[in-house]
């Protein structure tokens, strides 16, 4: 018989591990991966492959040769970052920009802080925002997806995103109603299914919601951040819309257009960079929702999700130390 082991209790452990969480997120992203390949064709697959391989490669190099510590590329976190980065860029992005994005995501966004668990910002978003600022032209020329059920792949026609159309239209002095009536405008159903210009992963709200549902059932994410995020975004944009429907789009369009769904369920819920307590997560979600609408309506960029999440990431340590969980036996008051 081998030696008896002694250790402190508990002696049993849950099946869920870091690995299972990370691969759960990957599984949740599969519908959106298929949608992107369906609409953008082989280009989408190319972008995702380069991004994933780039992230895995940089993580491996940095862990092996720079930090000289254990190599943990099979824990799935770099894989998630790679796919999310690809989800956040247009399908026609040149390969070298993607490699730079992967290096920034992993190198600066994650490993420079000490690796998984220590990064204050979502690595994929760090990479995305870096690319957006450094290569604004390449990052905002979106290939148009083919029509739903259409044969083949559209040729490299580029066009603006739904939010881009709105922003441009508004600055040209049109009302929302005029913009939405124009033939170029995708409309609610197309936004839902994915027939709109945009980054790889953000176009189909339906596919993303399907994955989110999977993450909920597997308890990889909790309701707090998504509900608070969507709630605050809907309420804030709803108030604006009620004030002047000609200048502000309705909340539903806000949700379906752009990277809202992707950001809410896949990036704002990133465990490492979001608060740990339920109360804190609600504060985080509300803040991110407000900021997103603020940037979309009044900011220079048509899209505000990545900036909003990154800004709230910066607040996470503060939120963590101010919003404590409800302690057992704390509410009891005497006399």
């Amino acid at each position: 018989m081998s030696l008896l082991t002694i250790s402190g209790s508990p002696h049993v452990h849950t099946q869920q591990s870091v690995k299972s969480i990370m691969y759960g997120v990957v599984i949740a992203m599969i519908p959106a991966i298929f949608v992107s390949v369906y609409f953008f064709g082989i280009d989408a697959a190319r972008v995702m492959l380069i991004s994933v391989l780039g992230c895995l490669f940089f993580e491996w190099v940095i862990q092996k040769y720079l930090i000289k510590g254990p190599v943990t590329i099979n824990d799935g976190s770099a894989l998630v970052t790679g796919i999310l980065l690809a989800f956040n860029v247009p399908a026609n992005l040149p390969w070298w920009i993607l490699i730079i994005g992967a290096l920034v995501s992993i190198g600066i966004g994650k490993m420079s802080f000490g690796g998984l668990g220590k990064n204050p910002f979502n690595p994929a978003l760090v990479g995305r925002v870096f690319l957006l600022i450094s290569f604004p032209v390449q990052m905002t020329s979106w290939p148009m997806p083919k029509a739903l059920f259409a044969e083949g792949i559209t040729d490299a026609i580029t066009g603006p995103t739904t939010l881009g159309i709105i922003k441009e239209g508004l600055s040209a002095g049109k009302t929302i109603q005029e913009i939405m009536a124009s033939p170029d405008f995708p409309g609610y159903l197309n936004d839902m299914m994915g027939v709109q210009g945009g980054s790889l992963g953000e176009i189909s709200a339906l596919a993303l919601l399907l994955g989110a549902l999977f993450m909920f059932t597997r308890k990889i994410i909790t309701w707090h951040i998504p509900t608070a995020y969507i709630g605050s975004a809907v309420i804030f944009s709803g108030i604006l819309w009620l004030i002047d429907p000609t200048q502000y789009i309705d909340p539903l369009m806000h949700l379906l257009a752009g990277g809202m769904i992707l950001g809410v369920f896949y990036m704002a819920t990133d465990m490492v960079s979001s608060p740990m307590t339920a109360r804190g997560q609600i504060v985080f979600g509300v803040g991110a929702g407000l900021l997103t609408i603020l940037i979309r309506v009044w900011g220079a960029y048509p899209e505000g999700v990545s900036f909003a999440i990154l800004i709230m990431n910066a607040f996470t340590p503060l939120i963590n130390s101010y919003f404590k969980p409800k302690r057992f036996g704390e509410v009891v008051k005497h006399g």
Binding site: L3, L4, T5, I6, S7, G8
Partner: peptide, 9 residues
């Protein structure tokens, strides 16, 4: 000699 093995913090 070791008689039991310790695991933990």
């Amino acid at each position: 000699p070791v008689k039991v093995s310790y695991e933990g913090a």
